[in-house]
Amino acid sequence: MVADLIIETRNLHKSFDTGGAVARVLRGVDLGVERGAFVAIMGPSGCGKSTLLHLLGGLDRPTSGEILLSGRRVDGLGEGAWAVIRRREVGYMFQSFNLIANMTAAENIELPALVAGVSAKEARRRRDELLAQLGITSTASLTPGEVSGGQQQRIALARALVNEPAILLADEPTGNLDSASTREVLAMLRERHGRGQTLVLVTHDPNVAAAADRVVHMIDGRIESAVRDGPAPADAAATPGPAP
């Protein structure tokens, strides 16, 4: 059976010029993520896991190699085309939430929908639904500075999901949270995964990684191993990608 890969990278390389010296951050990453999978990427600081996530979301360009989303080559796309992909197919979560400070929770959540051309009425409907699902309806009219860290990350999750993206990329989403908030956010991510959401999460925390059904370990810009760590859905798999 041919796996339904929603994300696929082939021999992905990324180097940075740091004042004359070249830092090779990714050194040939082959990764395949099947539709509906929950994949955690772990590894020590500087191993390239965040860079990999940036490349998957089009926030940066690979030095070489290929990226395919739902079977389509996207590594050569321009910024405008990537922006369209991000507003429709990819949701992003950050360690420090990165909510827009002068917008209320409701406005933050609606923003990607409005950018994607959804009507204001539909954006409000989606927002209210997500606020209710995530239990943060009471924060709707508050600005990020007026809510707790856990609530901020839930708002960030709602914002990432408002366009119903096929892929949710999360970079250390619990890194700035206390343990109670971490549990809450993880429960929500699992719940979304349970509904078939593809999740790729970067973390340092083994407890967080344990929530994933696949854990990819990276060292020195390479994938060292892919371990089935948690309860896998029947149709999900995460493996080192197919040979280039």
Binding site: G80, A83, V84, R86, R87, N163
Partner: peptide, 16 residues
């Protein structure tokens, strides 16, 4: 600049 960067991650093009 962080806000602008976040907006880009949310799908705003450079033109927008």
């Amino acid at each position: 600049q962080r806000d602008y960067a976040v907006m880009k991650t949310l799908g705003l093009t450079p033109g927008q």
